[in-house]
Each structure stands twice: as C-alpha cells, then as structure tokens.
Nucleic acid binder design. Structure first.
Lengths: 239, 239
DNA sequence: CCCCAACGTTAATGAGCGTTAACTCGTGCC
DNA sequence: GGCACGAGTTAACGCTCATTAACGTTGGGG
C-alpha cells in the first residue's frame, strides 16, 4: 500500500463525497425514512446496492452526515470564539458563523435537528455530546457579553435563549426553499441581506433576554404578565 | 328527545380524539413514517386495523392533525389580532397566543412544520393556505407596530423576521423534551417564566428587525461589499 | 500473464407495514 | 325476537425496501 490507489478527480469530488451531498439533499427534502437507497444511488449515477461499496448502510450515511456537521460546527465555533477579543466579539463571531452555515448548508442544518432520532443509540450520543459542547460555547459567550445573564440564577435563561436563537437562525432553510439554490436572492432578500438580518435578529433576541433577566432578577422573568414564579436556581449538569 | 347512540364518557374523551392525541404524540416523537398503525392502535387500547373504523387511513390521521392545528392557529390568531387596540397590541396578542400554543401543544407544533411533506398534494395545499393566512396576520401586525417595517421596501424584511420568530418560538418543543409533561418546570424554567422569556425574545427580535430596516432603507439591506467582512456593526439594538 | 482489489451490476431474500376481508359481539329499536 | 349497526378482532394480501449473494469488468504490479 505504498501508493495511493488512484485519484479520480473526474467528477471533481470523490464518490464518497458525492454520495454525502446527494444523500443530504434527499434526506433534507423528504426525510431519512422517505428516501430509498435506490434513489440515492440514482442521484450519483450508480444504482442501488452499489452504495454499499462506500458506506456500510443507509444508517451509516446519516450518521456520517450528522456527526460530520456536528464536528464542523463545534470546531469552527471554537475557532471563531477563541479568536482574540472579548466575549462580545466571540458571540458576534459565533452568530456570524452559524448564520453562514444556515445559509450555505441548509440541507445539513435541516438534518441536524430533524433526523437525530433515526440514529442508533451510540451515534446519537456522539452527536448530542458534540451539540452540547457547541451549546456551551454559546452560553459562555452570551453570559460573558451580557452581565445580567452571568448571574448564577440567570443561567437557565441564557441557555433557553441560546436554544431559541438556534431556532431563529435555523428557521431559514425552513422558510426558504429546501434547496441551496447555489447563489442568488432568496425570498426577496439578497443572501448577504438575509445574513445581516439574521445577525441583527439574534443580537436583538439576546439583548432582550438580558433585559428580561435583569428585570426579573430573583423573581423570574415577568415581562408583560406579572405572575411571579419561584426562581428555579438548581441546575444539574451531567457529564 | 332523539336519544343519542351512546355517551361513552368513560375515557373522558371520545375514541376519535383519543386517537388524535396519541397519534400526535407518536408522530412527534418518531416521525410519521417511523410509526406503525399497530403502535397507534396499541396506544389507545385497540389493536391495529381497528383504527380504520375512525379514520380512512394513516394519511388521514396526519391530515386531520395538521389541518386542525392550522385552522386553530389561524382562527385564534384572527380572534386575538382583531381584539381592539392598535397594531402593537395585536402583535403582542399574537406572540402571546403562539407562545402558549408552543408550550401547551408541543407535539402539534412539531408536526406542523416537520411533517408537511407527508401530506397528499391536496391536503398540503390546504395547510399551506392556512399557514399563509396566519403569516399575513403577523406580517400586518409587525408592520403596523414598527413603522420602519411598513415601508414598501421593507416588506421582505418583515416577512423574513416573522418566519424567524416562528422558528424562535417553535424551538421550544424542540429543545425541551418532546413530551408535554403536563405541568411542571421545564429546563430549569417555570412554564410561565419560559413564556415570558419567549415573549421578550420575540419582541427583541422584531425590534432589531425594525432597526435593521431603518438603517438599510433604500439599499435592500446589502450588508457589505467585501467578501468576508464580518464586522456587522450596523445596528445597535436596544429594547 | 495473471491476479487482485476497487467498483459496479442484477437477482434474491426477508422483514415490515398499510390496507382489506371475513367474522364476531354487544346494544338500541321496531 | 330479529335486525341493523357501530366497533373490534385476527388472518391474509401486496408492496416497498434495506441488505446480501453472486457475478462481471477494469487496470495496475508482481
């Protein structure tokens, strides 16, 4: 095995990546269970069981996609968050990176939170561990950027806000056509315009979360309706 | 009097509704294609094909659920939005209603945007029509509440912002356990605390959208001409 | 030259599943 | 009493689909 087998380079990207791309597109469009292996094969020019030369099975394809994207998110997130500057800059970089991801890899973002339950237990745990790490990155940045959220009692608020902002940003592939569309405008907004808007929305949401936490410090967050609740201060962190 | 056939009242709610509830739960938990009819039957105490006495088929159950929730959202939305007061009050009422929905009917909210593709063409069109009507309600309220978004050029921004806020609010069933859990605290936050927080986040996002639209008025919100210019720095949001 | 390893092909297998058929059982009404 | 009917039951059909088997082709290295 001293020499590389061969370098196809014909289809620009190796078979394995080609399969990844088409599988992601199809899974995002019709769901993991709604797509047959024959269809994936046809999409890459081979037919049916030929895929088994490249992946152990249909499950393995989904696992590869979900673990891959989770790793990319976490790695890139770490890179951006730790790129000098303070917490506000880190948060801004995280938002920018996630928005870019959501706009450029819609299929994967869609899969990322839609198809987790179709993974075998072990892979699911792996993905969840990566997701948790990514979330921690955000929670730390947000709490660093907004002092009101740094209060111990505000930790659940920060966490929930991050979840919500994920939903906000990830909604894009959902509202737009599921297809990447490669380049041009979407829904009447230029891609960069949409990116800027999502960026603003995310900041606005976090800012509001900080305001709510400050206002309701010690009595829960009561914005409009003033029903007070006991401040749930106990937080359990597992693993 | 006409003597109704019978009044079960034993299981508290009629078979048909029982099936609706369990089917929603199962579909939300494992996806429409991931649940078999036998399983739905078992969940309501009858077995397998007995369901066909109540629904025309599995597809019909999903259609019933999705059309039902879409109608409820639109109807309740109209009620709340047109309940006197100006646009700001209407927007506030819409947000409150949707948050309530997302917290109390998580299964349905999940299905609402996850399983649309498993509907037959006709039903899908019906649901989309209802969803579009609901969205218009929001777009009108937002543009009425924030003058900057009322500008004709800002219409796509308003629309995108509404989509994003839907994603934000709907993220709740997603981040929390899929199970309604009926009552108690979730993720360290009391239910009402979470409601208040989501309310604040939604307002914060809309406010930021208005700010972005005002800042980028006339230029279509094109953020930067540079390729990787990530210094947003455009809108300083304040609640 | 020959072999083997990579890469595909088609046919077969076997399980799962939605739906239908045929039949049963209780209950209100004439 | 008998009849119709709502509500279930189990067995069987038919189809889809992931996976495996068995076989074919190409090309480079010994």
């Amino acid at each position: 095995m001293g020499s590389m087998p061969n370098v196809p380079a014909a289809s620009a990207l190796p078979r394995r990546d080609q399969i990844r791309k088409e599988a992601a597109r199809l899974f995002a469009a019709r769901g993991f269970l709604g797509v047959g292996v024959d269809e994936i094969g046809k999409a890459v020019g081979i037919s049916g069981p030929g895929l088994y030369r490249h992946f152990a099975g249909k499950d393995a394809m989904l696992a590869d996609l979900l673990i891959g994207i989770s790793e990319r998110l976490l790695e890139e997130g770490r890179r951006r968050a730790g790129n000098g500057g303070g917490a506000p800059e880190a948060l801004d970089a995280l938002i920018g990176g996630h928005v870019e991801f959501a706009l450029d890899d819609r299929d994967l973002i869609t899969l990322h939170d839609r198809e987790l339950l179709n993974l075998k237990e072990e892979d699911r745990r792996t993905v969840r561990r990566l997701q948790r790490g990514y979330l921690e990155l955000w929670v730390d940045a947000v709490r660093g950027a907004y002092p009101a959220l740094a209060e111990p009692a505000a930790e659940p608020v920060a966490r929930a806000a991050v979840h919500a902002v994920f939903g906000l940003i990830n909604s894009t592939p959902h509202s737009l056509g599921p297809n990447p569309a490669q380049d041009d405008r979407v829904a009447g907004l230029q891609r960069d315009g949409m990116a800027a808007l999502l960026h603003s929305l995310a900041h606005g949401a976090f800012s509001a979360a900080a305001g709510a936490a400050a206002a309701g410090a010690g009595s829960g967050a009561g914005a409009a309706s003033g029903t007070e609740a006991e401040a749930g201060a106990d937080t359990e962190v597992d693993t």
